[in-house]
Design a protein around this nucleic acid. Structure first.
Lengths: 129, 129
DNA sequence: TATATGTATTATGACGAATAGTACAGTTGA
DNA sequence: TCAACTGTACTATTCGTCATAATACATATA
């Protein structure tokens, strides 16, 4: 569920942060659901507890979770981030991907069909409201 | 033209590599066009010549340029890379972006129209065959 | 030959990531 | 009360990568 890519350039704590955000955002982790304890997740992923703590701290700071000493860390019900900025970033990435695909020889139709396919398969996979 | 972001997490040599690839695939740098000399570009960007060399070496290894000792480094006319792997990677990224956009409230139509728009605007900017 | 080009090598410093270890505070239930 | 869990904080250390520095060498060309 929290699988990591140890060969990635991105640091573990950041991969974990992004992964958990994705799980929250896609509704896999429900509001107020408890996350694995720092030490538990550290053991599960065979990484240092400090690394997990760093990720949780970041998630807390960005508003995705809240932590209660002695109790645990939980998914924050409200999503705080400004979607406009996020959308701009996504659009920028999308633009680059499309440019690459066109260069690699895909036609406009092929790309559009691929997008349609990904949209339809995604709808089945994630439900959040 | 080869502007860098020194605050980025990506190393300089990789930023430069990607930047040059982008210039090549978008047709800004023409086939057989000479790239700036290692030492010249190093001075221009105020980085170490070894850093430039590392980028050029990577570009050579990936087939985007060819280097002739005593002459210089030039844009390779044919693009050699195995597109299959690159496409798989792009498709994977695309899938994630679409999932995020759907979550952020964009409709399927909106995404498809955005893609069409990006495709049409891209076609004007890049020409390679 | 002088000067440009790419290439290779070794050494070094700087920085961040991850680990190791310890300690402290709050919660919970036996 | 006490043991066992939770999050949190802190220092020290190891490790790898990036970038630099400084040479050296081979090739091309005017």
């Amino acid at each position: 569920m929290f699988d990591l890519d140890l060969r990635s350039r991105a640091p573990i704590y950041e991969q974990l942060t992004e992964k958990i955000i994705e799980l929250i955002v896609n509704g896999v982790l429900k509001p107020d659901e408890q996350l694995p304890a720092v030490r538990v997740l550290a053991a599960e992923l065979t990484v240092n507890p400090n690394t997990i703590q760093k990720a949780y701290k970041e998630l807390d700071h960005r508003g995705y979770i809240y932590s209660l000493p002695g109790k645990g860390s939980f998914v924050r019900p409200a999503i705080p981030e400004d979607h406009t900025l996020r959308l701009q970033s996504l659009e920028h990435d999308l633009k680059r991907i499309i440019a690459q695909m066109l260069y690699l020889g895909l036609s406009a139709d092929q790309i559009e069909n691929l997008v349609k396919h990904l949209i339809s398969t995604n709808k089945g996979g994630s439900s959040h409201d």
